[in-house]
């Protein structure tokens, strides 16, 4: 048999060493909810699995510089059970909690969702909207980059050989900020997003949007950060005209495909519909803190 080597390093350095030194296909085993499915379908045939869950800090959520650092192996369920994190970044938490079933939530992680590099990954548009950073360890040391720089095409990341994501950092936010994420699926649960939209925004005292980040998933080979769309609502109070402009900008930015999950036409339309709805939820949340 072609044996798959399985390792459980207890330090980041040991994991990097294993990944960097591997002959053949080395894969990080984290929540495993994507990897095991791919292995079963022979989409991925690894020769080495590096299970990172025994490394200290991988399972930890901690406060850092007013924001939150979430270890790579923290599951969606664990994020949802963290009241302070859920209060500061409800959109990111709700997006992560949309991945799969309750059962999948017991294992699936945000870092894994990001590195699986599926265009439909739920947590990714929410993280992008939040301005999240991914901490990466590798043979050349540690670095931290915006999450949107990790996926480069479906199933492919910008990570170099030997590198892996050790944590996600969600920054501190000003007062009167809120974020939200919605996805469209044909059922109520258990589907991959046909379109996903994450928006994070900050209001001033007059309830005018003074900062915004808008991201879309499942409408292009990777999740999109839409600066033009954000500009349509900055300086507005999300009046109908501003929301129309936001919807139009989001629809215009889509470069989707027709597939079993939805048509191009449908995705383009839904991107705008969701953006309007998400912006209003984010605004309502911002007004409350």
């Amino acid at each position: 048999m072609d044996d798959i080597r399985y390792e459980t390093p207890t330090s980041v350095n040991a994991a990097v060493k294993l990944l960097a030194g591997a002959q053949g296909v080395a894969k990080v085993l984290n929540g495993g909810t994507d990897l095991l499915v791919q292995m079963r379908a022979d989409v991925v045939t690894p020769t080495l699995l590096v299970d990172i869950k025994k490394i200290a800090d991988m399972k930890v959520i901690k406060k850092e510089k007013g924001g939150w650092r979430i270890g790579a192996s923290v599951s969606g369920a664990e994020m949802g059970e963290h009241p302070e994190l859920s209060k500061m970044w409800p959109g990111v938490v709700e997006a992560t909690e949309l991945i799969g079933s309750t059962q999948v939530q017991g294992r699936a992680t945000m870092a894994g969702n990001l590195c699986n590099a599926s265009p439909g990954a739920d947590s990714v548009p929410a993280m992008i909207a939040a301005g999240a950073l991914a901490a990466i360890a590798g043979p050349n040391g540690k670095r931290e980059i915006p999450v949107e720089q990790i996926p480069v095409s479906p199933g492919k990341t910008s990570l170099a050989k030997g590198e892996f994501v050790t944590s996600i950092y969600l920054p501190k936010r000003p007062k009167k900020s809120g974020d939200a994420y919605l996805r469209f699926i044909p059922r109520t649960e258990m589907d991959i997003a046909v379109v996903g939209c994450g928006i994070s925004l900050t209001l001033d005292k007059s309830k005018t949007v003074i900062a915004a980040r808008v991201a879309l998933g499942a409408v292009a080979p990777t999740a999109l950060l839409l600066e033009d769309a954000a500009q349509t609502i900055i300086g507005t109070k999300l009046e109908d005209a501003a929301l129309d402009a936001l919807a139009a900008a989001c629809s215009a930015a889509c470069r989707p495909i027709d597939d079993k999950r939805g048509t191009k036409e449908f995705r383009i339309k839904i991107a705008g519909v969701l953006a309007r709805r998400v912006a209003l939820i984010a605004r309502d949340r911002a007004l409350k803190n």
Binding site: G32, L36, Q103, G106, R107
Partner: peptide, 19 residues
């Protein structure tokens, strides 16, 4: 295939035996 793994509800088809 739902089971409890260290007190957490998971699909046992999505975990490796070695884990």
């Amino acid at each position: 295939c739902s089971i409890m793994l260290d007190g957490r509800l998971v699909c046992s088809c999505l975990a490796l035996g070695v884990e």
